[in-house]
Amino acid sequence: MSEASRQPVLTVEDLHTWFELRKWGFFKAGEVRALDGVSFDLHSGETISIVGESGCGKSTLAKTILGLNLPTKGDIRFQGHSVKSLDKQGMKWFRSRVGYIQQDPYGALPPFMNVEQILREPLIINGVSDRTQQQERIRRVLEEVKLAPVEDMLPKFPHMLSGGQQQRLVIARAMVLEPALLVADEPVSMLDASVRVEILQLLRRLQEVYNLAIIYITHDLSTVRYFSERIFAMYGAKVVEKSSTEALLRAPRHPYTKALFEATSDPDAGNLAQFKDVPAGEPPSLVDPPQGCRFHPRCSEKIPGLCAERIPPEFMVNEEQRVLCWLYRGEEQVG
């Protein structure tokens, strides 16, 4: 492998995104710490799944990477360029290289544009002005996402498509500029079970063909097995566990990841007889997060005098798993 191909597509370094709260419109009244120190590398052809509950910061992470939110602190480097230092032209290049797949396909598609117009728009904006070239690329991308027959699809408006077709159109729009990175924010959570698999398999195939890097955001732990190499579990604006998919499914380490694992039901008649061992309570407030580990108020394994006072650093449990948890304080500390 050459030096260049080993360079990550995306590097996220100590990323913080805080939203300021205001009182009476101008007095500062604290901030919502939606993202509080996230770092990782993502290589081409690789998928990272980010799992967590609502309000844990996973969508903020996606939006900050896309440049829709400004980071308060930290940096994002895309193909070697720091996104912070890009000028207007640079941002345009960056946005053409990063595709975004939204959660609600119907909400993400303009109702007054047909399929052809929706797919032409990004080409026009990014300087593909030749009509035949536009046609050719639209055609190719529609075939790739299997919206066939292409001729029938072009004049259709979003409301004439089924949910699965709408989501495929959103994917086509993200793919039409041939990006290097896709950010998929809950791409299948609004779809029916039978369509869900189809969309995940489509994304997987596109990844293989184009050597795409994908960030897959989900609240559903059971879909990640089929889709990703690494899993990050987020809780209270922090990534509490970084693990390879295989290792996590074998043995989740952080008490929160364990709880997520326990809470996910596989279809099995045996579930009826068993109660689930999940922590009660609610995720923490991000305006005034608890001291020490953010999970400690709900944690059944907390260590008195430690978890409630000191923020856990990252510990390396083994080659494949790193956790922010004091339970592993005997292990090697990272960073």
């Binding site: 079970a193 039978s194 369509v195 869900r196 698999v197 189809e198 995940l200 398999q201 559903d220 732990l221 059971s222 879909t223 097995r225 089929y226 499914l249 694992f261 996910t264 596989d266 279809p267």
Partner: peptide, 12 residues
Amino acid sequence: VPTLREEKELQF
């Protein structure tokens, strides 16, 4: 239906 605890070939 994707399953967490066992590996299976998903179909649509």
